[in-house]
Structure formats: C-alpha cells, structure tokens
Design a protein around this nucleic acid. Structure first.
Length: 227
DNA sequence: GCGACAG
DNA sequence: ATCTTGTCGC
C-alpha cells in the first residue's frame, strides 16, 4: 500500500518530537466511519538484539487470514514513553509498502488518542496510511478511569485532564484485566469499542493484534534464531 | 522535587 | 519489548 510520506525519526530530539505531535493534533478527525469494516489489519513489532521486526496481518470478517507481510531493519529510535510512534512507525511503514490488499481499518498495538498529546501510535500512523485506525493497548499510558464490571463487554470511559473522553477501558473477557481501546483517527470512540468487540473471540486481545503478535514472534524466531 | 510511564 | 520456571485456577 502507498504511504503518504516517510522520513526517519532517528535524528529528532525529544523536544522536536513533541512539536511534531502538537502540530498533528489539529488534524485529528474523530468522525463516524459510516460503514462496516470487512477487511481488517493488525500490526505488531518484535525485537531481537539491534533489529526491529514489523508484521501486518490482514483478515476478513470470518477471520480468514488474507495476507501477511513483514519487514525488519535496525532499530533506530529508543523506547520513550509517549514517543512510541517514532520508534515503531518507520519499520511498520516499510512493511506497509509490501501490502497488496487495502484494509478498511488497522488495529495497532498501543494507544490512539489516549495519549498526553492525543498522538499515540495508532493516531500518528493514520496520517501515513490515510485509513481509520484503532489503538489496542494492554495497559494505560494516560487518562483516568473507573474499573469496569467483570463481565465480557463491560467498559468505562477514559478521561483526560479536561474531562474529555479519550478512550474506553474494555473488558474483552470475563474476570480478565481490561484492554485500553482508543480511536486512532477517522472513527469515533464508541465505534472503536464495538469493532474491537466484534473482532474479539476467546482471548483478551482482539484477533487482529493478537495474531499480529503471534506472527511477529514466529518470524523473529525464523529469521534470527533457528532459520 | 516526586511519581508515572503504550511497547 | 525482552530476559525466563513454575504454578494457581477455570
């Protein structure tokens, strides 16, 4: 798939990254999707020594795996809370170029707007691929919330310092720690929640991201260990 | 100054 | 994320 524009982030300092994020805030469009996604992609990265491996898995409504692409290159940006996109997007976008099928929406392993500057991985990534995105995080980065009830489907809202909703704490499985769902872009908070549940089977992590994680581990082992 | 802090 | 064994519970 095509990429809007891309440049390495490796020479940016902390302050410059924050400036980029602040400039992109005004471009966020949390508008209704107005259609039901049928082709969904999941993204995840794994790391081995100095390398980063990004994989993208594409599935249809029946969870059939339609396409899988990956790309690995040397890691060129450290993990810094709040700046995850600068570390992961460059690798992801190289894998994205190899993708033939155009998904209706993309699930990222991290936050969307549930971020100090509303610029989590999923939101930042949406500008490069021009598609709706959802952030699925296993833990909280930013925001306050009440604990949702224990049944599958229970949820509570995540709020920022201005008491604005920035995401949902969603119980995707009974008696299991909830996931933090937030829209990346071009979708609403509630749609992100509904679509996440729709793509969740018997595990805590919804299928797109869960499968992406499994394959990123598998490819890492094939390329850097046994194979 | 101190604590928090996606992957 | 990654390094790593067993273990409690459905």
């Amino acid at each position: 798939m095509e990429v809007n524009y891309i440049h390495s982030f490796k020479n940016l300092n902390y302050k410059q990254c924050i400036e980029i994020q602040n400039k992109l805030i005004e471009k966020i469009e949390l508008k209704p999707l107005n259609y039901t996604p049928e082709i969904v992609a999941g993204v995840d990265l794994s790391f081995f020594q100095e390398y980063s491996i990004a994989i993208i898995i594409v599935i249809d409504e029946k969870f059939n795996e339609i396409e899988l692409v990956y790309h690995y290159q040397k890691t060129e940006f450290p993990y810094i809370p709040g700046l995850l996109a600068f570390r992961e997007l460059p690798v992801f976008l190289e894998a994205w170029k190899k993708l033939k099928i155009k998904p209706d929406i993309v699930f990222f392993d991290g936050q969307g707007i549930a971020h100090p500057r509303k610029m989590g991985l999923a939101t930042h990534g949406s500008y490069f691929i021009n598609l709706p995105t959802i952030g699925i995080a296993k833990s909280r980065l930013y925001g306050t919330y009440e604990e949702p009830c224990k049944e599958k489907g229970c949820f509570s809202y995540l709020f920022d310092k201005n008491n604005e909703k920035i995401g949902i704490v969603l119980r995707t499985r009974k008696d299991v720690k909830p996931v933090f769902v937030s829209p990346g872009n071009y979708i609403t908070i509630n749609e992100a929640k509904d679509i996440t549940l729709k793509y969740t089977l018997k595990y805590k992590i919804p299928e797109p991201t869960r499968l992406a994680h499994i394959y990123s581990q598998k490819i890492k082992n094939e390329k850097f260990k046994s194979g």
